[in-house]
Design a protein around this nucleic acid. Structure first.
Lengths: 207, 207, 207, 207
DNA sequence: TATGAATGAGTATTCATTCAT
DNA sequence: TATGAATGAATACTCATTCAT
C-alpha cells in the first residue's frame, strides 16, 4: 500500500526537480523531455505517465509553489488592515512565486493563457476559480461593513481584481515595468482605483 | 515611377488577401508560406521581400484593419457624450475588427503579447503607445473639466483603460465570455469602476 | 476443473470480441492493445497471456471463422457436381469470411503474407498446408476418374489452385475488382483455365 | 538550361546510389533517411524534394532497373520460339532484377502490394498495366495464329500470366522455393498449364 | 493467473527561411 | 526585384511488450 504510493510520489518528485533544474539551467525550450527523464532516472515513457505533455511539467513546478504560497498568504492575512493591503498581500505572494524565475514564469503564463482545452486549461481555470472564490469573502465582508458598494457582486469584483493583478504581472513579465514597480506601485494603483470606484455611494451626498 | 510602386502594392495586396483567405480556411498553423505564395502568384522567396516572417502576415492582415478602425473611431468620436461612452466607442471598434475571425485574432494577440523583441514586438508596442497617446487628450480634457481627478496622470489612466480593454477582449477570446457580454457589459463595468475610482475628490466634502 | 477453464475461455472470448469491435470501429493500427484490454475488462498484461502479440489478435479473429467456414464447406461439398464447382464452393467460403471486413482482411493477409517467422507465420503455413491437403483428394479422385491428367502431381495442382484463389482475393482486396467479380468470374475463369490445362491428353488424338 | 537540369539529375543519381548502398549494407529499415542524405551529400530536406517518402527510395532503385530490364527483354524477344519461352524470357528478366537483392526486393514488393493510394500505388499500377499491355500483342499473335483460343480476351490472359509470375516470385521471396526452382520450374509449370488451358478447341475433335 | 506500472526504442518529415542566380 | 531549389534543425510522444509483485 504505502510502498507503491511512496515509490510513485518519489518518482514524481524526482521528475519535478529534474525538470526545474534543467529548465533553469538551459531554458524551457532547450530542455528535452528525454534529458529530464534521464536526470530523474526514469524511462522516457515513464515521464508521460506523470504528465501528459511537456507544458504540464511547467504546471507541475508552479502549481505546487502557487498552492503553498496562496495557502500561506490566506493563513497570514493581515485581517486588521485595510482591504487593499490584504489584496496586495495575497497578490504579492503570487508575484513572489514567479520572481526567482521570470523566464519560466513567462512560459507558464503563456501556456496557461493561450492553450485552449486540455488538462492544463482545466487546471488553470480551476485555480483561478478557487483563488477568486477565496477572495470573495474579503469583498463580501467589506460590503457588509459598508466600506464597499454593492452595485457589483463580490464575484465580479474579485474577477476584476484578478485581472488587474494579471495585468501588473504581465507588465513585469514583458519588460514594461521592473519587478518592484509592477508588484508595488502598479498593482497598488490599479487596486486603489478599483476600490475607490467601488466605494459605496454616500447617502446625503451633496450633488 | 507609379508603375513600379503600383506593381509592388498590387503584390502586397495579393499576398495579404491570399494569407487571409488561407488562414481563415485552414487555420494559421495549417497554412504554409509556400501555399500563400502560390495563391498570391509570387515565388516562395518573394513573400519574404514583403514580410519578415510568417507572424508578420498576421500583422499585415490586422494592422491595416485596426488602423482604419481606430482612425474612423476617433474621427466619429461622440465628443458630446460622457467619457465612458467615448471609450466604449473606441474600444468597441477594436472588438469589431476581431469579431469576424476570433481564431486568427487569438493567434494575433498571442503573437503580439508573448513574442519578445523583433519587428512585430516593436510595432505592437508602437501601436499601443500611439493608441494610448490618442486617448490621453480625452482624459486630460476630462481632468480639465473637473470630471476626473488628477491624482493619476492621464497617461497612466490611459494605460489602465487599455489593460481593462485587453482583459475584456481576452475573456472573449478564451471563451470566458461571449462576444456581446465581453464587448458590452464586461468592458463597460470595468471602465465604469475605473472612472468612478478616478473621480475627483470633491472639495468641501463632508468627511 | 471446468470452472478454471471456463473462466479462461470466457476471457479469451471477451478479448476476441473487444478486438474485433475496436478494429472495425477504429481500424487495426489505430487500436491500442491497452484499449482492447480495457474493453475486454482484463489487465494490459493479461492480454499477452492469451496472444503473443498484436497481429495474433487478427489471427484469433480470422482463424476461428476460417476454420469453421472450411469445415463447413468440406462437409457440404457438392461431390456430385464438377470439380470446378467444388473448388468454387470451397474458395467461395473463404471469400465470404473476409467479405464483411475488407480492411481487416487486408491487414490479416498482409500479416500472413509478409511476416517471416514467428508463430503466425507457422500457423499460416500450417493452415495453407492443411487446407491444400484437404483439397488433394479432390484432385486425386479427378485424376483417378481420368478427368484430370497426371502430368502434375495432385499436391502441385492444389498449390496452384490456391495461388489462383489468392490472386483473385488480392484483386478484390486491392480494389482491382469488386467482390462479386473477384469471387465469381475472376476466380472461376482462373480455375477453368487451370482445369482445362490439366485435362488428360486424350489418347488417339488426331494430331 | 542544361546546367540546372544536370545538377538535378546528378543529385538524384547520388541519392539513388547512396540509398542502394546503404540499404544493401544495413537493410532497409535500419537505414535512416538522414544517413542517405549525408551519403548523397545533400541536406535532409533535399531528399524529400526528390522522393515523397522513404518507400519511394525503393521505387527509385527498382523502377529504373525494371524498366531497363523489361525494355531489353522485349527488344531481344525470341520471337521465333514458342510463346511460353518468350513469356519465360520476359518474366525471367524481372526475376533477374530482384535476384541480387532478395531482402530489398521483398520490401519493394510489400510496399507495392500493400500500400493503397499514393504516388507509389499509382506508379506500380501504371507499371503493371504497361507491362501487361506489352504482353497483350504476344497473346494476340498467338490467337491469330490459331495456337491460342479466343474464349478469353488477350488482356485477361496477360493479367493471369502476370498473376502466375507474381505467385512464383512470391514463392521465392518467402522462402517457399529457391530462386532457380521458382524462376524455372515453378513459373514454367504455371505457364504451361495456363497455355494448355487456353489452347484452342480443335475442330472436328471426337468428343 | 493476473496485474498494471514501467520500459525505451526510434526517425521520417515539415516548412520557414535563405541565397545563388 | 524576383525566383524557387535548397537548406537543416529538431524532438515530443506512442505503445507493444515485459516483469516484479
Amino acid at each position: 500500500m504505502g510502498r507503491r504510493e511512496q515509490a510513485r510520489q518519489d518518482k514524481e518528485r524526482r521528475i519535478r526537480e529534474a525538470a526545474l533544474t534543467l529548465f533553469l539551467e538551459k531554458g524551457y525550450e532547450q530542455t528535452t523531455t528525454k534529458e529530464i527523464a534521464e536526470a530523474a532516472d526514469v524511462a522516457t515513457g515513464t515521464l508521460f505517465l506523470y504528465v501528459q505533455d511537456k507544458p504540464e511539467l511547467l504546471a507541475l513546478i508552479f502549481q505546487e509553489r502557487i498552492s503553498a504560497a496562496v495557502d500561506k498568504a490566506f493563513a497570514r492575512l493581515p485581517g486588521h488592515r485595510p482591504l487593499i493591503d490584504q489584496l496586495l498581500h495575497v497578490f504579492g505572494a503570487l508575484f513572489d512565486v514567479y520572481r526567482p524565475m521570470p523566464d519560466l514564469a513567462r512560459e507558464f503564463v503563456k501556456a496557461q493563457f493561450f492553450v485552449r482545452g486540455g488538462k492544463m486549461f482545466d487546471e488553470s481555470t480551476r485555480f483561478r476559480d478557487s483563488f477568486q472564490a477565496r477572495m470573495i469573502p474579503l469583498f463580501e465582508a467589506e460590503q457588509a461593513a459598508g466600506r464597499l458598494g454593492t452595485d457589483y457582486p463580490a464575484p465580479f469584483v474579485a474577477r476584476m481584481a484578478f485581472s488587474l493583478y494579471f495585468n501588473a504581472l504581465s507588465a513585469w513579465l514583458h519588460g514594461a515595468a521592473d519587478f518592484k514597480t509592477a508588484r508595488t506601485s502598479l498593482l497598488r494603483s490599479f487596486l486603489e482605483i478599483q476600490m475607490r470606484g467601488l466605494a459605496p455611494v454616500r447617502k446625503g451626498n451633496p450633488s
